[in-house]
Design a protein around this nucleic acid. Structure first.
Lengths: 240, 240
DNA sequence: GCCGAAGGTTGCGCTGGCTCAACATTGTGG
DNA sequence: CCACAATGTTGAGCCAGCGCAACCTTCGGC
């Protein structure tokens, strides 16, 4: 298990406000690990032995219901912290984390969290920011699911992914990891069929270009307008 | 502004692990305030001047969309922390907090959060637990909205409210604050009409007893079964 | 280069739950 | 005590999106 070059992780939000010596000390307790595409970093229900920072790649966090349905809780981009179950008082992971691309993570034993936090209280406040942001995003999602139609929700979901993990390509912004219709459906509370129909429609209108596990936003701004448009807003009723 | 009796708040989760002297010191920075029923503690978008612990009463946190729809984010029960915008890095409150009953809160100036946390790091870890729990609950809600029908979601919502704020009454468990059909609808992503129909149905079956701003669960266990039952699970198709 | 599996598309029919609407009931302020 | 506002109930019609089904396309392994 190789030691980690501090310069590669010094800028991460989890370590904001630490001196070189300090995160040198923290880093010494981490190990680096590689997960090949489609392999699980950890499983829902499993003992929360570690917490993680994603160095490279992309990780999907998803929950499975007792009846077997899956819901995507989050996509983790590089630099982000995940699997902090222990820090929020959980013995077990509440979701499954899967590498959707070949990924490299930094892993700390959960057992060392209390000691690290005691020595470096800023870890707690930094994690609080992270968890707070997740809470906000999740609230946004609840609001969207409560008030918007599927098409708007899908638009918002893709725009968020593009912002978080978009890569500029020739004709727009491509979501920088493999993502299926099913994945988008599980992010927005719909079915892969409906997502497929929506993307087909958008493709015809030139808004996106998509294919197998691949989505390119060609007109992010138009998508944004669509996402904010209340359906039936276009034709105000005529007063006779 | 009266000083606060430490014995009344010593047991709150926010102060777990503090000595008498320590929360005496923290408490000295708080003021107590009373909010009459239906008055706002703070408004969405307003500068996050304070964070709060609810001493008595009940507070509803809700978000309003640009198009005017409201979504209930959370009900706060006594003892719980709310309005911690500053701690999670927000300048402004992301939701409106309204007293649904006459309520008494402890309020700290947001400005004193950084200093308090520096002196009492356990504040950060305690808040992390709180925010973590909220995140989990919100994820549960997303999963429910993604995979369950309205009737199941309403059942889950009421069972959660009963667990958090239920009061044993003669014929069951009553939700211990005024709550309308509209409120329940805004918690579950449906309309007051649908909630009304569902409650009427349950009333007929003897599962609940409800009226104006009032819901009593008469058969919590049966409701729980209903909440977990996949619709169409009852009659397996006959093979001719 | 072939084959199987995974992913994507599209048509069709059905229905849960929304919208619109009218009305009933209960609390509240003057 | 009355009037009105807030809350709740219920009917009727409609449609967005789901379930099912059939089929097509692309990728990866051998």
């Amino acid at each position: 298990m190789a030691t980690v070059d501090p310069s590669l992780v010094a800028h991460l939000p989890l370590f904001a406000g630490f001196s070189a010596d300090e995160f040198g000390e923290i880093l010494r307790e981490a190990r680096s690990a590689r997960f090949a595409k489609n392999n699980a970093v950890f499983q829902q229900g499993e003992e929360a032995h570690s917490f993680y920072v994603l160095q490279h790649g992309h990780v999907r966090a998803s929950k499975t219901t007792p009846t077997g349905e899956q819901v995507v809780v989050r996509y983790v981009a590089s630099g982000e912290t995940f699997g902090v179950a222990m820090a929020i008082g959980l013995q077990r992971y509440p979701a499954t984390a899967t590498a959707v691309d070949d990924s490299v993570v930094l892993a700390w034993p959960s057992a060392s969290w209390p000691r690290l936090v005691e020595k470096f209280p800023a870890l707690a406040t930094n994690t609080l920011q992270t968890v707070g942001s997740l809470l906000q995003e999740t609230h946004t999602r609840v609001v969207e699911m409560s008030t918007q139609q599927v098409e708007q929700r899908v638009a918002h979901a893709l725009l968020r992914l593009a912002k978080q993990s978009g890569r500029k390509v020739e004709h727009g912004v491509e979501i920088d990891f493999p993502i299926s219709r099913q994945d988008v459906a599980q992010m927005t509370g719909t079915t892969l069929h409906t997502v497929s129909r929506i993307l087909s429609g958008w493709e015809q209108r030139g808004l996106v270009e998509s294919g197998r596990q691949r989505i390119v936003l060609r007109e992010p701004h138009k998508l944004f307008v669509l996402a904010e448009t209340v359906p039936g807003d276009s034709e105000p009723p005529v007063k006779p």
